[in-house]
């Protein structure tokens, strides 16, 4: 029978293959579709760790909504695969940024072993049902939650302001 650990490994492999393909595919549509695969793999990881709510949110928000918008924009702009330009300043800079981000994630994990053992299929995330997540989110983390929603509202108002047509009597 398929054990949780095997399922965890299978989903990890799916997520990793997807992630590698996202950065190696030249065509933006292919890269975006591989990213969908990665998100589905990560959703599977959440499920095997006993965090069904996070898994469902991952599928609905990332795979179902954000990636659809990504694809929509790519199709709208009719992007094609960029020509191979070899090494350039931008590429070097993005490589540097990638290494720095990896270090930012990896260093705390390397320093604090208890973080690494946070969740495995054998000891799943406790208290991850919808009600328990809501209890924490709307009491202890209520302020950060509201701040984030305000930030998103500002971004939305800004985007609408930039995109809308100016009125006739208005100077841009």
């Amino acid at each position: 029978m398929l054990s949780e650990r095997t399922a965890f490994l299978i989903f990890s492999v799916i997520a990793l293959i997807g992630a590698v393909n996202v950065i190696t595919r030249r065509h933006p549509v292919h890269a975006a579709l591989w990213l969908v695969g990665t998100f589905l793999g990560v959703a599977g990881l959440f499920l095997t760790l006993g965090a069904g709510l996070l898994g469902a949110i991952q599928v609905m928000v990332y795979a179902g909504a954000i990636m659809v918008l990504f694809l929509f924009v790519i199709l709208l702009l009719n992007l094609d695969a960029p020509p191979d330009e070899g090494l350039s300043f931008a590429r070097g800079a993005s490589l540097l940024a990638a290494v720095a981000t990896l270090a930012l994630i990896a260093l705390p994990l390397a320093r604090a072993p208890e973080l690494r053992a946070a969740a495995t299929p054998e000891s799943p995330v406790a208290d991850a049902s919808a009600g328990q997540v809501a209890n924490v989110l709307f009491t202890r983390y209520a302020l950060p939650f509201e701040v984030v929603s305000l930030l998103l509202l500002i971004a939305m108002v800004g985007a609408i302001h930039l995109a809308r047509r100016p009125r006739r009597d208005e100077t841009v």
């Binding site: 579709l33 589905l40 469902a56 599928v59 795979a63 179902g64 990636m67 659809v68 694809l71």
Partner: peptide, 9 residues
């Protein structure tokens, strides 16, 4: 609701 959103992909 979550999985039925996959179809659009």
């Amino acid at each position: 609701v979550a999985v039925s959103a996959i179809g659009v992909i």
